[in-house]
């Protein structure tokens, strides 16, 4: 049994939320560079150039690339041989978020209650996701997710008769409906199957994949490409001003489901896809 003190988790989270907001990861940079070659609209190219200038500036000056420094999503892959010591894990994660957002001059965007709406002034609560996996390591993945793209996400319990064509239509319509609101070019996370909540979780977790990495199942990889092609036919383009690159990638994750069910969840991510990970 390997021991890891929860303070180490807190420190890691504090560092990752800042790094994620200041410096765009190479996979996203690569996807935007590819988009520069694919985008045919002059206005779309101009927007992509601004996006590149922006993340370069943010990285150099160590300032947030976007003022919406996001909800802190913290995904832990906890090795089952690890013993966490020193107190409550969730508290430690929230301590890390509070520290990172305060020290990094990030924006405090979280409220205490969806109706009372009082700012907690330290960007907590974090959204915490824990998977127990084999091994004696703890992997910490952070995604600082903006509100604009999250608000454009959708979930639908389709009837099985809708099939792939119905699922495809729902996904493409969700992206069309999001349009400029979600800050395209987008990364479109899709979860199909499971149940009501698992489909949403699959969609969210698909965003953790490196941008453009395919689903390991060739059949689903082909469907991802089909969705990307359909989405890029919409003409929405960078920031919705018209163009040929509406999405940088579509990631689909699937899971078995009940005979009555075809849950489909679409979790939309903006071009400022701020993610970072570390292994303890």
């Amino acid at each position: 049994m390997r021991e890891i003190h929860v303070d180490q988790v807190a420190e890691t989270v504090a560092r990752l939320v800042q790094e994620a907001n200041f410096k765009l990861e190479d996979d996203v940079v690569g996807a935007i560079n590819r988009a520069m070659n694919l985008e045919e609209a002059p206005v779309g190219q101009a927007i992509l150039l601004q996006i590149q200038d922006n993340y370069t500036l943010a990285g150099t000056e160590r300032v947030p690339m976007c003022q919406d420094t996001g909800v802190a999503l913290v995904f832990l892959e906890l090795g089952q041989e690890v013993h966490l010591t020193g107190g409550d894990l969730t508290d430690a994660i929230n301590r890390g978020v509070a520290k990172g957002y305060t020290e990094g001059y990030l924006r405090m965007s979280m409220l205490n209650d969806p109706i009372k709406r009082v700012n907690t002034k330290n960007n907590t609560p974090a959204m915490v996701y824990i998977d127990v996996v084999p091994g004696d390591q703890l992997k910490v993945k952070v995604d600082c997710k903006g509100g604009g793209s999250e608000n454009m996400s959708q979930l639908k319990m389709l009837p099985p008769s809708a099939g792939w064509e119905g699922a495809k239509r729902f996904i493409v319509e969700a992206v069309a409906n999001a349009g400029p609101n979600a800050c395209p070019p987008l990364i479109v996370g899709v979860g199909i199957g499971g149940n009501f909540d698992k489909s949403a979780l699959l969609a969210k977790k698909s965003l953790l994949r490196h941008v453009g990495d395919p689903n390991p199942d060739p059949e689903w990889e082909a469907r991802e490409q089909e969705l990307l092609a359909e989405i890029n036919k919409l003409g929405v383009g960078p920031m919705g001003l018209g163009g040929t690159v509406t999405a940088l990638a579509v990631h689909v994750e699937v899971m078995g489901c009940h005979i009555t069910a075809l849950p489909v969840a679409v979790n939309i991510e903006c071009h400022s896809h701020r993610h970072k990970e570390a292994v303890l």
Partner: peptide
């Protein structure tokens, strides 16, 4: 204006 270009 361009969303996500807050630093610029």
């Amino acid at each position: 204006s361009t969303g996500g270009a807050g630093a610029l």
